[in-house]
C-alpha cells in the first residue's frame, strides 16, 4: 500500500520534477561550477580557482551594490506592506457584497497580467522632465524649474517596484483576511474594543501568515531584479542583479556566476528564515 501510494505520487509529480531538475537544479549547479572557472576576453576556461570570489569579496563595489539592493528591498517592502495591507483590509472588511469584492480584487490583479516593461515605460510621460508631474508642480508654483530627480533616479526605481509588486502583498494578505472568523471581530466589538483595538489585537495578528508570504514574494522579486533598476534609473544605479547582467553582457560568465551564487545564498538565507514563520501550504 505504501509503495503504491508513493508510486502514484511519484508518477503524478514526475513532470514537475523533471522540469525543475532540468531547468532549475541543473542550471544552478552549472552556475556553481562555472563560478570557479576563469575567463579571457573571448572564452571561459574550466579551472578550479577562487579568484572570482576573491575579487568579489574584496571589492568595495560589491558591498556598495549589496547595500543598495538591501535599501531598495527595505523601502519597497515597507511601502508595499503599508499599501497592500490597507487595500486588503478595505476589500476584506469594508466591502459588504461578495460580487463587488471580487470585481475590486480583479481590478487590482489585472495589471499583474500585463507587461512589466510597458508598465515601466508608462511612467515616462508622468515623471519626465516635461512630464505631467513637473507640469503640475510648475503650474501650481511649487517649483520654478522642472524637478530632475523624478525620472531616472532612485525615486523612480522605488516607485516602479511598488507599482509592479504591491499585488504580491495584497493577494496573500487578502486571502488570509478572508479566512479570519468574523465572529472573532464581533466578539471583540461586543467586549468594547475600539476599531483600532480590533485592528491591532485581532486582525493584524491573524493576518501575519499572509504578511509573511507577501514579504517573501516582494523581497525575492526586488532582490533578484535587474531590469527595473536598469530601466528606471536610466542605468545610473546598480543593484546585484545589474552587476550580474553587466558581467553577462561582457561575456564574463565565471564572474557573473560567482556573483549569482553569493546573491542566491543571501536570498535563500533570508527567505529560508522567513519560511520558518509560516506554513505556505496550509495558508493557501
Amino acid at each position: 500500500m505504501a509503495v503504491s501510494r508513493n508510486l502514484q505520487g511519484w508518477l503524478l509529480a514526475a513532470p514537475l520534477t523533471a522540469v525543475l531538475a532540468g531547468f532549475l537544479v541543473l542550471p544552478i549547479l552549472t552556475i556553481f561550477i562555472v563560478s570557479f572557472w576563469q575567463a579571457t576576453e573571448f572564452s571561459i576556461i574550466p579551472a578550479f580557482s577562487l579568484e572570482n570570489y576573491q575579487f568579489l569579496l574584496t571589492s568595495p563595489v560589491t558591498y556598495q551594490v549589496f547595500f543598495k539592493t538591501f535599501v531598495y528591498a527595505a523601502l519597497v517592502w515597507g511601502l508595499t506592506l503599508g499599501i497592500g495591507f490597507t487595500v486588503a483590509y478595505y476589500l476584506a472588511f469594508h466591502i459588504r457584497s461578495e460580487a463587488t469584492r471580487m470585481v475590486l480584487f480583479l481590478l487590482c490583479t489585472i495589471p499583474f497580467l500585463t507587461s512589466n516593461i510597458i508598465r515601466m515605460i508608462s511612467w515616462i510621460p508622468f515623471l519626465g522632465r516635461n512630464g505631467l508631474a513637473n507640469q503640475a508642480l510648475m503650474s501650481l508654483g511649487i517649483v520654478d524649474a522642472p524637478v530632475e530627480w523624478l525620472l531616472y533616479s532612485d525615486f523612480s526605481v522605488v516607485l516602479a517596484f511598488v507599482h509592479l509588486n504591491t499585488l504580491f502583498m495584497i493577494t496573500p494578505i487578502f486571502n488570509t483576511m478572508m479566512r479570519i472568523d468574523r465572529s472573532l471581530v464581533e466578539a471583540a466589538r461586543d467586549n468594547g474594543a475600539s476599531g483600532r483595538q480590533i485592528l491591532t489585537h485581532v486582525i493584524i495578528p491573524l493576518s501575519k501568515p499572509g504578511i509573511m508570504i507577501g514579504t517573501i514574494f516582494v523581497l525575492a522579486l526586488v532582490m533578484g531584479d535587474f531590469i527595473t533598476v536598469r530601466f528606471m534609473s536610466g542605468s545610473q544605479s546598480a543593484n546585484v542583479g545589474r552587476l550580474i547582467s553587466n558581467d553577462i553582457a561582457l561575456l564574463q560568465y565565471p564572474s557573473a556566476s560567482a556573483t549569482s551564487i553569493v546573491l542566491l545564498a543571501v536570498v535563500l538565507l533570508i527567505i529560508g528564515a522567513l519560511m520558518r514563520f509560516v506554513n505556505i501550504r496550509k495558508e493557501l
Partner: peptide, 30 residues
C-alpha cells in the same frame, strides 16, 4: 500528487517555492 504525502513530497514542495524566489537572471544564465 500532493494531495497525499509521498516520499520526497516535502523536498519537491520546497524546490517549487525555490523556483519562484530564485532570481530570474540566474535561471537565464544557468
Amino acid at each position: 500528487a500532493f494531495r497525499k504525502r509521498f516520499r520526497g513530497s516535502a523536498a519537491l514542495f520546497y524546490l517549487t517555492i525555490a523556483s519562484l524566489v530564485i532570481p530570474s537572471i540566474l535561471v537565464s544564465l544557468g
